[in-house]
């Protein structure tokens, strides 16, 4: 699309295996800079695997194919280096450090920041997004509510000043009002210039904020297009938006 001409992330024929099981086959996609791209699909379709593959968390994966970020190959790079190059990740289940304080969690998120000043700037920005985290900074993260933990997980991911933010099911387990809030924040993050790649089961909500949409089915990319096209796509509608709650195979 001409609104977002630059490609930030590109996957080319990516193939990932879980042991003897092929979890992703021949996945090629592009994520335009400054967009929100949502990946839809049922449980087990390979959505989380896709994010984990991009971040290099899975040992020896992808088995085949290339991943480039800002024109540089990142498949085969160590996760730490990929994060350092500007990709942040909010994992499924948030995985905050529950025994550490809110501030310490954010400090870990800023691990790749080179100096105190950029850490301080990132912190100010995160506190603008989430004033609540500033209030609770010396509280143990494990004592936060589910919604607050999700805010912390997103805040932590923003601490390294990423260009691309990967989010795995940020709405999972949250009350509807909080879901709306999380998606508002995701739009704001995009408006500040961070590209977002989002995995969601809450298709209706996700497509409402997204620019681009992709559908994964059994590890294969079956539909790709603009978010508005996907909303109108009858097949997608039937598969992923039929029931207001989550369709599970």
């Amino acid at each position: 699309m001409d609104k977002h001409p630059e490609v930030l992330l590109e996957l080319n024929a990516v193939e990932t295996w879980h042991g003897s099981l092929r979890a992703l086959s021949d996945v090629s996609l592009t994520v335009p800079e400054g967009s929100i791209t949502v990946i839809l699909g049922n449980n087990g379709a390979g959505k989380s695997t896709l994010l984990n593959t991009i971040l290099g968390v899975l040992e020896g994966q992808p088995k085949n194919g290339q991943i480039s970020f800002q024109g540089t190959r990142i498949d085969r790079m160590a996760t730490e280096r990929i994060v350092r190059s500007g990709i942040s990740y909010v994992p499924e289940g948030r995985r905050i450090f529950s025994e550490l304080t809110v501030w310490e969690n954010l400090k870990v998120g800023a691990y790749v920041q080179k100096d105190q000043l950029s850490t301080k700037k990132a912190l100010e920005r995160v506190c603008d997004f989430f004033p609540l985290l500033a209030e609770r900074q010396s509280q143990a993260a494990g004592t936060l509510s589910g919604g607050e933990q999700q805010m912390l997980a997103i805040g932590r991911a923003l601490m390294n000043g990423p260009r691309l933010l990967l989010l795995d099911e940020p709405s999972l387990g949250l009350a509807p009002i909080l879901v709306r809030q999380v998606f508002d924040i995701i739009s704001q993050i995009r408006d500040e210039g961070v590209t977002v790649l989002l995995v969601e089961q809450n298709a209706r909500m996700a497509l409402a904020v997204a620019d681009e949409g992709l559908v994964l089915d059994s590890g294969e990319l079956v539909v790709a297009g603009s978010a508005s096209d996907l909303v109108d796509n009858a097949e997608v509608e039937e598969l992923y938006m039929g029931a207001p709650s989550l369709p599970i195979k």
Partner: peptide, 21 residues
């Protein structure tokens, strides 16, 4: 910073890695 990262790694090494530790 390293000490805090070490505590984070003790609690959840994968979460620490995806934060660049």
């Amino acid at each position: 910073k390293l000490g805090v990262a070490m505590q984070a790694t003790q609690q959840d090494p994968i979460a620490a890695r995806i934060n660049g530790v």
